[in-house]
């Protein structure tokens, strides 16, 4: 299995190379000039030209590409932001923890809220509980995030003064943004859980468990939920992967310094080093998340373990051939 993990980690290299190529290509064809945001709209043409020269924007694109990749490979240097002149890597690393915390916390909150809801809905199918919780989760999915964010801000910060309106100095500052993203995910997770549980509780092994004289709760949780987890975990993995790209709306409403606003600003300013660095980091993070999810699948469902075991062997065999 270690082999499998190493193999998957090695696979990230072509992924990242592909991402770098695509982003470079996009930076060529995207209209807009990063120099504008650097020297200002009223800078004389000579100054613009000098700035282009300084940034290396006048080099042919393949030279720029080689320079960029060589710097990454030899020095781990993702370049400096056009706007701030700071190393992109450092800038991202101060922001990534915020996004990671927000993502993990909101997913946990969403899971805590949604899994019981989904399970109860499936078990009490078509009851009022089912209808109510599905209506709730539909609302969670369909309420616009910015609206929910502003309304909770209005209620908890402006009217009730229970929570701070901005700043994440303490735990209390995290409550609203986590809740805002969590509620959106909650609806999604609850529906997945319900659908998956509905399928599972009709399986024969659930009847077997009942025939053993097992309590209903144990039947549902131990025999049912564990089998229903795969689609839920898959969904959670996707959501985490997407969320790592940043929560632009939550960041802008609750004044969080996350990856989302950073990337948005970088794209708007055509700040290519930041965009490229950010996307490479996201590609790596996404690959790692997907690897973790695959390992989790195997931990949940032993049938899937054989899959990566055989992949590991394939890898070993090829090595033997070479030797």
């Amino acid at each position: 299995m270690l082999r499998y993990i190493i193999k998957r980690l090695l696979w990230m290299i072509p992924v990242v190379v592909g991402v770098v190529c695509i982003i470079f290509f996009l930076s060529v064809i995207t209209p807009g000039d990063p120099v504008t945001s650097l020297v200002g709209a009223d800078a004389p043409p000579e100054v613009r030209e000098a700035m282009r020269e300084k940034l290396g924007l006048n080099d042919p694109i393949y030279i720029q590409f080689v320079n960029y990749t060589v710097k990454i490979i030899t020095r781990g240097d993702f370049g400096n932001s056009y706007i701030t002149g700071q190393p992109v890597f450092g800038e991202l690393m101060t922001r990534f923890p915020v996004t990671l915390k927000l993502t993990i916390a909101s997913v946990i909150v969403a899971l805590i809220l949604s899994v019981p809801l989904g399970v109860v809905s499936a078990v009490k199918r078509n009851s009022w509980i089912d209808n109510a919780s599905m209506a709730l989760s539909l609302m969670g999915v369909s309420i616009p995030q910015f609206w929910l964010g502003l309304m909770t801000l209005l209620l908890f910060a402006v009217k009730l003064h229970l929570l701070p309106a901005s700043g994440i100095a303490g735990i209390s500052g995290w409550v609203l943004p986590v809740l805002m993203i969590g509620v959106g995910n909650m609806g999604n997770f609850a529906r997945t859980t319900r659908a998956s549980m509905l399928e599972v509780i009709q399986q024969d092994y659930i009847r077997t468990a009942r025939a053993k004289g097992q309590t209903e709760a144990a039947v549902i949780i131990r025999h049912g939920l564990r089998n229903a987890l795969i689609p839920i975990v898959a969904n959670v993995g996707n959501i985490i992967g997407i969320s790592l790209g940043g929560a632009v709306i939550a960041e802008s409403i609750f004044s969080l310094s996350g990856v989302g606003q950073y990337m948005l600003n970088a794209i708007n300013a055509r700040n290519w080093p930041s965009v490229q660095g950010g996307i490479i980091m996201l590609a790596i993070a996404f690959s790692i998340i997907m690897l973790i999810m695959d390992l989790l699948y195997a931990a949940i469902d032993p049938r899937l373990k054989s899959e990566f075991r055989s992949k590991g062997r394939l890898f070993a065999k090829r090595k033997q051939k070479v030797a």
Partner: peptide
């Protein structure tokens, strides 16, 4: 106790 028809699906796979 009871033995069910299809042993393929009567056991909890996980």
């Amino acid at each position: 106790s009871m033995i069910f028809q299809d042993p393929m699906s009567a056991l909890n796979p996980v």
